[in-house]
Simulated assay, not measured.
Amino acid sequence: MWSATARAETYEVYRGPRKVKEVLGSEHMVDVTRLRPATVYVFTVRARGADGRLGPPSRGVRARTPAAAADDHRAPTRPAAARGRAAGSRAAQLSWSASTDDRYVVSYDVHQGGTKIHSVGGGRTAAVVTGLRPGTSYSFTVRARDAAGNVSPASPAVRLTTPGTDDGRAMAPTSLRATGHREDGAYYVDLSWVPPRVDGEVTEYEIHLDGRRATSLVFGGSAPRDRATYSFYVGRAAGVTHRVRVRAMLPDGTWGGFSAERTVTTGAGK
């Protein structure tokens, strides 16, 4: 699964240097088959625009296939006690009871209707589904998958309706703190916040200053999960009060809601 890229016509999936899949720009997940057991692979994704140009590769994702499970034809048990709730108007939080298997469960697949839209590891029994539409009814089911590719029966359906309006709070950064410091005659705003709790990494943020977009922040490598920090220049005048807030680009390529707004005054207390 990967985040959406604006105006992508298609996505190309590569295993090392070799292209193995191509999907439409509306899809953000694909299954890659015919892999060898107990082998490490590196996958990347590239977006192709309407003009035919191929974008740069994504960050490489390493995956190790499990050892071969010989003569395993028994599927995991059906996930039970499935439940869920809307988290704002564009997301849902799902949970279920763990399945059992004669060997082990490697993943859980979340389906919307008859389409798989998300997967989580076999040690997890919850997922956050984003990219939903306000005021829309959804039906989700969960299936367990073992190392041999056997898939369980579907869990009981979880039916929910997203509310018609979205204040964004469920997918917004929280605990935003704003302070300032002076360096070489200039003033800077120092921010810290807790990233929204979603499946996958949140690597991109947008910072608004005094009601307008001031800058974007993209974390390379491993993005912070517990608390993110950032500092940026705001000018050389003391005694200026600024309003600041932050929002995150969610793993499905949509923007979450804004954090609570904070104020900071340049040179305050100095």
Score class of each variant (00 low, 15 high):
residue 4 A to I: 05
residue 10 T to V: 07
residue 17 P to W: 07
residue 19 K to A: 15
residue 22 E to Y: 01
residue 26 S to K: 06
residue 31 D to G: 03
residue 36 R to A: 14
residue 41 Y to R: 10
residue 43 F to P: 05
residue 44 T to E: 13
residue 48 R to Y: 03
residue 51 D to G: 07
residue 51 D to V: 01
residue 54 L to A: 04
residue 55 G to R: 03
residue 58 S to D: 05
residue 59 R to V: 05
residue 62 R to L: 13
residue 64 R to S: 14
residue 66 P to G: 03
residue 68 A to N: 12
residue 72 D to S: 10
residue 72 D to W: 04
residue 73 H to Q: 12
residue 74 R to Q: 14
residue 77 T to V: 08
residue 78 R to H: 09
residue 78 R to Q: 15
residue 88 G to H: 03
residue 91 A to I: 03
residue 91 A to H: 00
residue 99 S to I: 08
residue 100 T to P: 01
residue 104 Y to G: 15
residue 105 V to D: 02
residue 108 Y to G: 07
residue 109 D to A: 04
residue 110 V to C: 10
residue 113 G to I: 08
residue 113 G to D: 11
residue 125 T to W: 00
residue 126 A to H: 08
residue 130 T to K: 05
residue 133 R to W: 04
residue 135 G to D: 13
residue 137 S to T: 13
residue 140 F to C: 13
residue 143 R to A: 09
residue 147 A to E: 12
residue 148 A to Y: 12
residue 152 S to F: 12
residue 153 P to D: 14
residue 154 A to H: 06
residue 155 S to G: 15
residue 162 T to G: 04
residue 166 D to H: 05
residue 168 G to Y: 02
residue 171 M to R: 12
residue 177 R to T: 15
residue 180 G to W: 11
residue 180 G to I: 07
residue 188 Y to I: 09
residue 191 L to F: 01
residue 197 R to Q: 06
residue 197 R to T: 08
residue 200 G to E: 03
residue 207 I to D: 11
residue 213 R to Q: 13
residue 213 R to G: 10
residue 219 F to C: 02
residue 222 S to M: 14
residue 223 A to E: 05
residue 240 V to D: 06
residue 242 H to C: 09
residue 249 M to T: 03
residue 250 L to V: 04
residue 250 L to C: 04
residue 252 D to P: 00
residue 256 G to M: 06
residue 258 F to G: 06
residue 260 A to K: 00
residue 262 R to V: 00
residue 267 G to E: 13
residue 268 A to I: 06
residue 268 A to T: 07
residue 268 A to M: 08
residue 269 G to A: 10
